[in-house]
Computed example of a mutant assay.
Amino acid sequence: MQTPWLVGLTGGIGSGKSAAAARFAASGIHVVDADDAARWVVEPGQPGLAGLVGRFGRAVLQPDGRLDRAALRRQIFSDPRQRLWVEQLLHPLVRQAIADNLAGAQSEYAVLVSPLLIERGQYRQVQRVLVVDVPEALQLQRVLQRDGGDEAQARAILQAQLSREERLRHADDVIHNTGSLQELETRVLQLHQQYLQMARGMA
């Protein structure tokens, strides 16, 4: 089956990507999240998990044999070389999982949610790049409220991600998510109508 007309949705951690994606999904649009695909490929029995255990040992497993994400995160954010190795292992597996998922899309267009849309070159596979943008201070505040983690780790994650300026440079459309959830949803609905017209024009 042919891949549908595709919007790439991205933004830094804590920007509101998930809330925007949920509004697209509520409008009947097929949404696939690269983070979900990254979880699929490290399920027990999958080659992604086997590769991680081969590299880091059973220290990255929970007692039930599933991936201990916090343990893996500690390994890779303290060593950029390890992070690169993990990305090189998992990226092709995730790419295939996303392609398989999109092949089943029934809506007039689809949305690929990916925090690494720009870094991994996924933006080249989409017709529009939509960036959910917030100032870094607000990102940090939201991450700490959501995850309850320590500030140093949250800042390390922010530093590891693409700069806000570089992300915006690739954007076709931007949601400035500094207001209420209702304002975010209103903007998504506006873009939804725009994307429907664009997708129909390409049919």
Rank of each mutant, 00 (worst) to 15 (best):
V42C: 03
K17H: 03
D33M: 02
H91G: 04
L6F: 09
Q190C: 06
R66E: 10
A160G: 06
E87S: 03
L72S: 13
N101Q: 08
G54H: 10
T10K: 03
T178A: 11
V42A: 07
A21F: 11
D35L: 02
Q197P: 01
R142L: 15
Q145D: 10
D35N: 02
R39Q: 04
A71T: 06
Q122A: 12
G201W: 03
D147T: 07
I76H: 08
G57F: 04
L102F: 02
T3S: 09
V42D: 13
Q75E: 15
R124D: 07
V86D: 04
Q2Y: 03
A103H: 11
D68C: 08
R146P: 10
G149I: 14
A154N: 00
L9N: 13
A71S: 07
V131R: 08
R95I: 02
S78P: 01
Y123C: 12
V126T: 07
Y109K: 14
G48Y: 00
Q193L: 03
L162K: 04
D173W: 05
A21N: 00
E151F: 10
V143G: 02
L184T: 10
Q75L: 09
Q193G: 14
L93I: 11
D36T: 08
Q145M: 06
E183R: 10
T178Q: 02
D147Q: 06
A171R: 12
F56H: 08
L112S: 14
V129K: 09
A105V: 04
R95W: 11
A21S: 14
Q106C: 12
I175T: 02
E151I: 12
A99E: 15
Q161C: 08
E185L: 04
A199R: 10
G28V: 01
G179I: 05
S18I: 04
S180H: 08
L168W: 11
L184K: 00
L130K: 00
W85V: 14
Q88L: 09
A22C: 10
R58S: 13
R124Y: 05
G11M: 07
V126P: 09
G121Q: 05
R55H: 12
D173T: 03
M1I: 03
S18D: 14
L130G: 01
V42E: 03
V188H: 10
G54R: 13
